[in-house]
């Protein structure tokens, strides 16, 4: 058996780096899209908006019950067809793997974030709503300035945990032939035959990023625990 040779990693680093950047970009976009959409989804259910609320509920139940990899496949085939129909001529409009990845991850994460926020909304004390009413705050201001900031605060550790999972899940884009960190490493590994070194490096990078984020989760938990201790 050959001894480990990490000089290969240095050579490969630029390619790995571009893979890592893609993973991070995908995580960031999916986070932003997912949080915005997820908050909207949660509010639509919270207000029990007729029809739309139910549709959203069904969508979330569906997305949460199937594996992400399957969702990726479906969106890759489905979105072009839907776009084609919307455009009116019925011919599929291919959107490319990158767009598929960003859209799918955003929509997929929205379902998970939405559940976190929905549960958080239900946990807000009724007195908070009453205080807002007594101060004549509009419904919009009540949610924007009082309710949602509290929900996001309470839910922030869980949201961050979910985002760590999301970051790890970005490796699934290999099914779309996209190259994330893991994809980059495995391609190189096949070229240079240095499987162990390549996969070790990937482990170290994932570990570093995820554990840094976990520290963040712990910090958020602690901080929130102190702020809420005497209530």
């Amino acid at each position: 058996m050959n001894s480990l040779d990490f000089s290969i990693v240095l050579q490969a680093w630029p390619y790995l780096w571009s893979g890592l950047l893609f993973s991070l970009a995908l995580t960031a976009v999916a986070f932003v899209v997912g949080m915005i959409l997820g908050t909207c989804f949660a509010l639509l259910q919270h207000f029990e908006v007729p029809v739309i609320g139910k549709v959203v509920r069904g969508y979330i139940a569906l997305i949460r019950s199937i594996p992400l990899i399957l969702v990726l496949f479906w969106f890759f085939f489905l979105v072009p067809i839907v776009l084609g129909h919307l455009a009116g001529n019925g011919r599929p409009i291919p959107i490319g793997a990158t767009w598929t990845a960003f859209i799918t991850f955003g929509l997929f994460e929205a379902a998970y974030y939405s559940e976190i926020i929905r549960v958080g909304l239900r946990a807000v004390n009724r007195g908070q709503f009453e205080a807002c009413q007594a101060l004549a705050l509009s419904t919009f201001e009540t949610y924007r300035s009082v309710i949602l900031p509290q929900v996001l605060r309470v839910a922030s550790p869980i949201i961050l945990s979910q985002t760590i999972i999301l970051f790890q899940d970005t490796s699934l884009v290999y099914v779309l032939s996209l190259t994330d960190l893991l994809g980059a490493a495995s391609k190189l590994a096949q070229l240079n035959g240095r499987l162990v070194e390549m996969y070790l490096v990937v482990v170290v990078v994932y570990l570093a990023i995820s554990s840094a984020a976990s520290q963040g989760v712990a910090l958020l938990r602690k901080r929130y625990a102190i702020a809420g201790a005497r209530r």
């Binding site: 908070q128 205080a131 705050l137 509290q150 702020a227 209530r231």
Partner: peptide, 19 residues
């Protein structure tokens, strides 16, 4: 029923500003 995420003075400022 104070707003726990706002400081004392911000609790007092919110409604006068928004309403």
């Amino acid at each position: 029923n104070l707003f726990p995420h706002l400081s004392v003075v911000e609790n007092c400022m919110l409604a006068p500003m928004k309403v």
